[in-house]
Amino acid sequence: MSEFIIETNKLTKKFKNRYAVESVNLQIKKGEIYGFLGPNGAGKTTTIRMLLGLAKPTYGSIQIFGKDMKKEKLTVLKKVGSLVEYPSYYGHLTAYENLEAIRILLDAPKSRIDEVLSIVRLSNDAKRPVKGFSLGMKQRLGIAAALLGKPELLILDEPTNGLDPSGILEIRELIKSMPKEHGITILVSSHLLSEMDQMATQVGIITKGKMIFQDSIETLRQRSKSKIAIKVNETEQAWRMLLSKGIQAEMENKQIYLPHSSDEAISTVVEELIHNRFSVFRVQEEKKSLEDIFLELTSGEGSL
């Protein structure tokens, strides 16, 4: 058996003559929280639909728990919980009855319904018809449904969609706690890298149907190189002076930028400036946020 819980090989989906997903090789290890990232229309939902057997790949294969999805779909799905795009529910039924309709299909014990309701903190609303629920409550019900069968793999497509900041935090904590407590592997999609930063251990970035990055979140963070920005009076002269001393510097937005350098190198530069009678107002480190990197990666045509 392969070491991956999910492994796809050249997974491809074509609609008419456009590729929604093109040759994607997902590799997700046990116990990971895999952040599946990409801007709108990148192909996240399409990929997830294929993983769950809702749509057929045009090309390529999917292995989950080391089993071929084409051949052993039902065996695989027994151990998978999912929430795709927006939560599904039967509005005329209560939260409890909604979960009961699913529980019957999963053969889970009845007590499990109360358990999942309390995990997502809906116990008090269990007897209300779901059509009166707020979006956040429906979303939590959807997550409860995904957890009902004690899955080994959880696939969540934008689970924080439509939630307020405290709801987002709550779901994030919930997701973070699961691999630790139950050994679950989680695939969670989002179009915000910042959201993933707080919970994902691995990230895959997809844009225009192609996977452009797949590695640990640390690796991605290391790409966020920092620069030193120096604000002085008479920026241009100061910059020329530094160049004439053979110091690599750039000028942008009336500031001087130095590539990330050692403390000594910075102090040398500042010394030079003062020595040449420039006034140094500010010396600060400017770090690109993960979001900036994400935008850089996904907006340009170029890939890694």
Partner: peptide, 8 residues
């Protein structure tokens, strides 16, 4: 989506 992603 929910129904057909179940083991049925």
């Amino acid at each position: 989506k929910q129904l057909l992603a179940m083991p049925v």
